[in-house]
Design a protein around this nucleic acid. Structure first.
Length: 278
DNA sequence: GCGCAGGGGGTCG
DNA sequence: CGACCCCCTGCG
């Protein structure tokens, strides 16, 4: 890390910050008055701005390879990713143009998605924000990193309830403890099924959250989180129902090795197009 | 305007 | 299968 600014340039249709940062895969990015998105990843300030027909991703520090991995820069999204997409997926891909799946830090993903369970995005965002600020100490500016496991373990269950985590406080502490004995790089290198099984051993991590961590934190593009919106879209637009496990199998058959990326587009599409009750 | 159900990218016991 | 922290929303 040599105090060197890393910059990645995307055509606008390949990187839509609003869609990416409000899709619920990360809860750490904000837009300022000028329309510039910023946040902290890998302990480094990053921001995303439009520049003509391009979108420029800038990180204050870190290698180009790191940020290419973070932004999934080497993957070609769009039609080529799902050559035999059906009409529903095609519509979702078109609607969500510019959506990408970020490869985030495993520990941040773990804690964030434990917090996400049975929760809503505004509250999730608030809890995570307060968690970061509390761990960073009282005197904290804008560039607050996501805490390390030891920082989280410096808090008590009461502290975590104080910042609004509710009954998840205990899960967060137990999982932070377990994270210290986990080699996430090894998990990322393991086959999906194995990684998924290992992730569900964390407190507060069931099958759905494990898939979110696998997809967003371990780079497992085949991980297909089954949540209420995905259930909804599979039922109303594909006529498919069943247990989450059956729905995951359907997704693997239908969408293939990148089912998780399809999930993000379908999720985004469903939230905009499907009624709450449908 | 206020109060109060209802529900939220599920998981645990 | 029911309870669960708590914030936000929608209705009466």
């Amino acid at each position: 890390m040599g105090q060197q600014v890393a910059e990645l340039v995307f055509p606008r249709e390949a990187f839509d910050p609003t869609t990416i940062f409000t899709s619920g895969q990360t809860f750490r990015f904000r837009k300022d008055e000028a329309g510039v998105w910023s946040g902290v990843a890998h302990g480094t300030r990053v921001h995303v701005r439009q520049e003509g027909s391009n979108v420029v991703f800038t990180a204050q520090d870190g290698s180009l390879d790191l940020w290419k991995q973070y932004t999934d820069a080497d993957r070609r999204y769009g039609g080529t990713l799902f050559p035999d997409a059906d009409d529903v997926l095609r519509a979702a891909l078109d609607y969500g143009r510019g959506l990408r799946v970020l490869r985030q830090e495993p520990f941040e993903t773990l804690i964030s998605f434990i917090i996400s369970a049975n929760n809503n995005i505004p509250r999730i965002t608030g809890i995570i924000d307060r968690l970061c600020r509390t761990c960073a100490g009282e005197s904290c500016g804008a560039d607050v990193p996501f805490p390390q496991a030891d920082d989280v373990l410096g808090m008590t269950e009461a502290d975590l309830r104080e910042i609004g985590a509710g009954y998840r406080a205990k899960y967060i502490l137990e999982s932070a403890r377990r994270a210290k004995d986990t080699d996430f790089a090894e998990l990322a290198a393991a086959p999906y099924e194995e990684a998924h099984a290992e992730l569900t051993k964390f407190s507060g991590v069931g099958p759905k959250v494990a898939d979110c961590i696998a997809l967003f934190g371990l780079g497992k593009a085949e991980a297909f989180p089954v949540d209420v919106w995905v259930k909804r879209i599979l039922r109303t637009l594909y006529g498919v129902t069943g247990t989450p496990r059956q729905l995951r199998e359907f997704a693997a058959q239908r969408f293939g090795k990148n089912a998780g990326i399809a999930q993000q587009y379908l999720f985004h599409y469903a939230r905009a197009h499907l009624e709450q009750g449908s």
